[in-house]
Each structure stands twice: as structure tokens, then as C-alpha cells.
Amino acid sequence: MMGPKRSRDGEMKEEKLGRADQAASPFMPMFEGFRTELDQHHDRRERIIKASRDITAASKKIIFTLQRVRTLGQPVPPFVVKGNAQYWETIENQYQNIAADVQGLNAFRYPQITGGNQEFMEALSFHHYLETQTLISYDESKERVAKMSGEAGPVLLTPEDYILGIFDMVGELMRFSITAMATNGKLPAGKPKKESQVKQEGKEQESADKMDVDEQTPATTRTEEPRTVLSDLRALRLQLEMFEPGGGKFGADVRKKADVMRECVDKVEKALYGLTVRGTERPKGWVPEVREERRPEVESY
């Protein structure tokens, strides 16, 4: 193998020998300029790959902690806030580290960041869902990343990153539901709307139980039934299936993830069915038979 160093040494020796046919290549100055720029490019790319990896790892840890939450539609408990603080900070630092590398012309140059972006999106949307029981919007997510990127300018979160992250978030909602059903024996649901809370403070439990049986039971009272995770999952599924990704790599990624997403919703529906049919027979602590299949990793662009 001929390393660059050897060639430079060799070149110098040749110059000393002064042999006409072995004189330094006339193209050398040009290639030296290329070398400098390619080195800068590779440095940037390396930083971004590393940041993407670190963001991915930190996001996974955030998600892991979030899976221990048992409530919906209210601020996550203090242990989660405390436990995850360092990871949010890691992510922020990583975005700041690479912000300068992805400005202007280079905004789309390093697609290697997409892996980190998607995983972050998954963590962010899951966290957001647990607290508000709503789907975080693309604009808000994009803004969030931009804010974390600091003064050098925003790191771009593309619509593709967002969508693919949301697909993965469905998997987290599935796990969240299954775990809740296994430990509490019911599907997590949000709090009833304020109005109903005031009127039927004491009936909250009852209405939640009803929801477990069939969350589509038409509301008999004026009060709105709280939404369950399953109804939210179905709403998500509906939107994601309506979405047309077009062709190319993104289209392929979406189709792959769409299959996994459908399976996830199915799993929750099956688990709920099981709970409904043999709910009372179920010994406490029995876990529904759902294999924890992780989605196939879709590699970054």
C-alpha cells in the first residue's frame, strides 16, 4: 500500500535526483489545494457522524426512561425529568457541536445526521405525547432542534426525519400500552376534559374502565370520553397511511416502517382483545404475549 506520506518523501528524493521524467508532477499544487479541502470535508463529516451516533444513543436512553412513565396527559414524574436531564443536555451539546458544519451550502451535504435526527424525533414526540397526549407538530420539532443548535445557526430537521421518527414513535406507544395493560390491567387513557372532571370527579375510574372495553362506545353523557392510547394510535395510523412519500430512498423507508407501524397497532388491538375477553381471569402480573420485536433498523441515508 502506498500511503500519502511515502509518496511525498519519494517525491522529494526524485527532485533531488533531478531526473526529468521523475520530476514532481505539475499537477501537485492543484492537488494540494484539493487535499486541504477534502480534509476539511472529511473532518466535518466525521464530526457529524459522531454527533449523530451520540444523539441516537442519548435519545434511546430518554425513551427508555420514558417507558417507565405510567401516566398520560400530565407532566412526567420528577424521576424522569431528573434522569433524562443529562441526556437532553448531551443532545443539545451535540447539535451545537455540528451546527457550524451544516450551514448554508452544507445544509444538506451531510445526510449522516438523519439517524440522530430521527431518533431524537422519536424521543421528543414520545415525551410530548406523554405530557400532552397530542402529536408534536413538525414546525415545533424543527424549531426545537434549531433552538438547541445555538448561535451558529440551526441544524436542519427535515420533514423526512420527522415522519420517520414518528413512525418509530408508534412502536414506543405500543410498548407503553402493553406495559400499562400488563401492570394496571387497562389501557392508558387521558384525563377527561375539565368540564367532565368537575362534574363527575368520582366517576372517573368508571368511565376509564368502560373505555377499556371499547373505546368507541358512543358517549352517552354530555361529557367527552377521554381518549385512549389506542384511539390515538389509530389516528396516527390513519394519518401515516394517508401520507404519500413519493419514490426514492425515503419512499422505501416509509413503506418498510409502515409495515412495522401497522403491526404495532395490531399488537395493541390484540392485547386489548385479550384483556377484554379474559380480563378478569387474568392473574395479576400476567404479561400479554407480545414479543418485543424491534423494528428493523432503517439505515440512515
Binding site: 397530542t134 407538530s137 420527522y162 384511539s231 390515538d232 389509530r234 396516527l236 404519500e244
Partner: peptide
């Protein structure tokens, strides 16, 4: 889709960007 979970504008916006 039960209202509340998803603001339909989110996916409309994304769809038009992708289109």
C-alpha cells in the same frame, strides 16, 4: 380520527412539502 391527538394541518403541511 378522534379529534385532539393530531392537528390535521401537520400532515397536510408535510404532504405538500414532500410533493
Amino acid at each position: 380520527a378522534p379529534s385532539g391527538m393530531i392537528d390535521p394541518a401537520i400532515f397536510e403541511g408535510l404532504q405538500s412539502k414532500v410533493d
